[in-house]
Simulated assay, not measured.
Amino acid sequence: MSSVSARARFEETVRLVADPVRRYLWRRTDPATAEDVLAETLIVLWRRHDHMPAGTEAVAWAIGAARLQLANANRSQRRRDRLVAKITVLDPPAGAVAEHGEPVDEEVRITLAGLRTADAEVLRLWAWDELAPREIAVVLGTTVNAATVRLHRARRRFEDAWRKTHPVSGHIETEEGNEP
């Protein structure tokens, strides 16, 4: 089949299946995802056009392809959601606890945002991803010694930045008296 007739056949298939596939997707996901999945489905149709049935069966075949593409998009979204959840949970530094005992994640994130990008990254690898210096070295493509030094310096810079926004009075509270 010539490229002109293959293109014409594909364009005719798109005219036939695009609206039914779009409606199928709109009923199952948000509009932006539906459009992205429709685009991915059309790519599949182009690649597999020789295997598509003709006529009205093409609509069912295209919806089947869209169903698989939507499943892929949903899996990707779940992975992104898990990653975001992982990133937003951070073990706060010692003493960085609100009055009611909950971690001050927002304050930690603000402090991290004020650091150099390289310092924030090494701290996230250490705290959020729970990587040891040897694993951080692999991620950063450096030596274990260099990763250890970078982590040490980043922790110092974080502590300094933290102290600037969360000063400690320097006084130790003690209870005096003759109580047993």
Results as ranks from 00 to 15, higher is better:
residue 129 D to I: 06
residue 144 V to S: 12
residue 123 L to K: 01
residue 160 D to K: 10
residue 122 V to N: 06
residue 173 E to T: 12
residue 123 L to Y: 01
residue 158 F to W: 15
residue 137 A to K: 05
residue 155 R to G: 04
residue 112 L to V: 06
residue 128 W to P: 09
residue 166 H to F: 05
residue 127 A to D: 13
residue 145 N to I: 12
residue 133 P to T: 04
residue 150 R to M: 12
residue 118 A to W: 07
residue 155 R to W: 02
residue 133 P to L: 07
residue 142 T to F: 01
residue 151 L to N: 01
residue 128 W to R: 13
residue 173 E to K: 10
residue 131 L to P: 06
residue 172 I to F: 07
residue 114 G to S: 10
residue 134 R to Y: 11
residue 161 A to E: 10
residue 141 G to M: 01
residue 149 V to S: 01
residue 123 L to H: 01
residue 143 T to K: 06
residue 144 V to Q: 13
residue 120 A to D: 09
residue 112 L to M: 14
residue 144 V to G: 10
residue 140 L to E: 00
residue 135 E to P: 06
residue 171 H to A: 03
residue 172 I to A: 10
residue 122 V to Q: 00
residue 160 D to I: 12
residue 138 V to S: 06
residue 136 I to Y: 02
residue 154 A to Y: 07
residue 112 L to T: 06
residue 151 L to K: 01
residue 173 E to M: 12
residue 142 T to D: 10
residue 117 T to M: 15
residue 113 A to M: 10
residue 167 P to G: 00
residue 128 W to V: 12
residue 132 A to K: 03
residue 134 R to Q: 14
residue 160 D to M: 09
residue 127 A to N: 11
residue 146 A to E: 03
residue 113 A to Q: 14
residue 155 R to F: 04
residue 112 L to Y: 11
residue 129 D to L: 09
residue 128 W to K: 14
residue 145 N to L: 14
residue 147 A to C: 02
residue 171 H to E: 03
residue 165 T to V: 15
residue 144 V to W: 09
residue 169 S to E: 05
residue 145 N to H: 10
residue 141 G to K: 00
residue 118 A to F: 08
residue 160 D to C: 07
residue 130 E to L: 14
residue 117 T to R: 13
residue 146 A to Y: 02
residue 126 W to F: 12
residue 134 R to W: 09
residue 118 A to M: 07
residue 154 A to V: 06
residue 153 R to S: 10
residue 135 E to F: 13
residue 169 S to P: 00
residue 172 I to K: 08
residue 113 A to G: 08
residue 173 E to P: 08
residue 164 K to A: 15
residue 159 E to R: 09
residue 121 E to C: 15
residue 145 N to F: 09
residue 114 G to M: 07
residue 171 H to G: 02
residue 120 A to M: 11
residue 121 E to Y: 15
residue 126 W to C: 10
residue 153 R to N: 04
residue 127 A to Y: 08
residue 146 A to S: 04
residue 139 V to M: 05
residue 134 R to T: 11
residue 170 G to L: 03
residue 152 H to C: 08
residue 156 R to N: 06
residue 167 P to H: 03
residue 173 E to G: 12
residue 130 E to V: 11
residue 126 W to Y: 10
residue 136 I to F: 11
residue 133 P to C: 09
residue 121 E to S: 13
residue 122 V to Y: 00
residue 127 A to C: 15
residue 172 I to L: 12
residue 167 P to E: 04
residue 149 V to F: 02
residue 144 V to E: 10
residue 165 T to I: 09
residue 157 R to H: 15
residue 138 V to P: 02
residue 155 R to N: 05
residue 129 D to R: 11
residue 128 W to C: 15
residue 125 L to K: 07
residue 165 T to F: 15
residue 127 A to Q: 11
residue 137 A to V: 05
residue 138 V to W: 06
residue 115 L to Q: 09
residue 171 H to L: 03
residue 144 V to D: 13
residue 135 E to S: 07
residue 149 V to D: 02
residue 122 V to L: 06
residue 112 L to Q: 12
residue 158 F to A: 14
residue 141 G to W: 00
residue 153 R to Y: 12
